[in-house]
Design a protein around this nucleic acid. Structure first.
Lengths: 180, 180
DNA sequence: GGGTACATGTAATCAGTTACATGATTTA
DNA sequence: TAAATCATGTAACTGATTACATGTACCC
């Protein structure tokens, strides 16, 4: 069981495995779920959600069944091996530190090369973008019922909220009081 | 001047451009600078810091000069075109939202599939990792003199500190009070 | 002068992205 | 029935990573 080499599985593999584990889905449904949840922190093009499940079928971690009329799309279901592998991964500690890839921060890092006005407008643009993002997260938060069968996506969202609030405070401070 | 197509330049290109702009460097020196600063948020293998500068030389944004004795390594310097392109990029607003790629959060997202004990130990491991990371950032912060010619890397580090503190609070809360 | 750690690079591979292409369904 | 949009995929490319390979300096 789950004799598949772990090396072949990327974070995106586990993401797909996890989504399919909680509900059998087509690629398009995966795309929709990603767009309204994990996609905020881990984005990728929809084509990945067509290619990756197919790969996982090849590894025996998912199975697929093609509808025999209408759009004839493929519905993916997790296999026993897939579930074993997913749970193994979930229990294994996450070692690599998170990557906070933010072009705004990268620009700030090099802002010694620009003027104070440039820094200020960078900070204001970033601040506005993060306020918008925060509003979106708050709307999602408000839309989740108090009693939900799976509270974990909601918990993850809470970290997103904290992060956005930190960004807003940060860029606000930079805007009003640019380093010099 | 700077007639190079922008499409060919990635974030890593600008990162290299920025580092070389502030000081002519060899690939190894770039590697060291990355490892002690931006690398915390935007990591990549050292081989990228050999391949990318070479590419930028081809685009006319860097120039290189090979030492003629000892290790005969290549020292990269930014060209006028390179500086123009870098400053253009710095002034252009950053549109894409940041990606917070964190395997710990991804595991939490799917933790409905595991036990409460598993969640707790995930949270404790993450909390410990973030406390360690915070201590490292604080040490770096403490090592920076009050009057520094370039305060921007320091400013960026402050966001890193805020982020780590948020993570520690978050995982602490999850550990003591796991969602269910 | 032999071992070890530091330093410098290249080649091959692959995951992820871009771009393209087309089918199905709804709406005007 | 035409247009628009929603849905479903594939092919080609390429940036980034892995793995390899070797050179140089220092230390015992």
């Amino acid at each position: 069981m789950a004799s598949v080499s772990t090396r072949e599985l990327t974070p995106v593999s586990y993401l797909v495995l996890g989504l399919v584990a909680s509900e059998a889905s087509t690629s398009y449904e995966l795309k929709q779920k990603v767009a309204s949840s994990v996609g905020f922190m881990w984005a990728f093009p929809h084509s990945a959600l067509y290619a990756e499940p197919a790969r996982l079928v090849g590894l025996g971690l998912l199975s697929d069944r093609q509808e025999d009329h209408g759009r004839r799309r493929r519905v993916y279901t997790i296999t026993d091996d897939g579930r074993v592998e997913l749970e193994r991964w979930l229990r294994e500690p996450a070692t690599e530190p998170p990557q906070l890839r933010d072009l705004g921060l990268l620009k700030l890092f090099f802002s010694n090369l620009t003027s104070e006005d440039d820094v200020r407008s960078l900070a204001e643009a970033q601040s506005a973008a993060h306020r918008e993002r925060l509003a979106l997260y708050e709307a999602i938060e408000a839309s989740i019922p108090a009693e939900t069968p799976d509270p974990f996506p909601f918990a993850t969202l809470r970290m997103g909220l904290m992060c956005e609030r930190a960004f807003i405070a940060f860029w606000g401070e930079i805007a009003t009081n640019p380093p010099q």
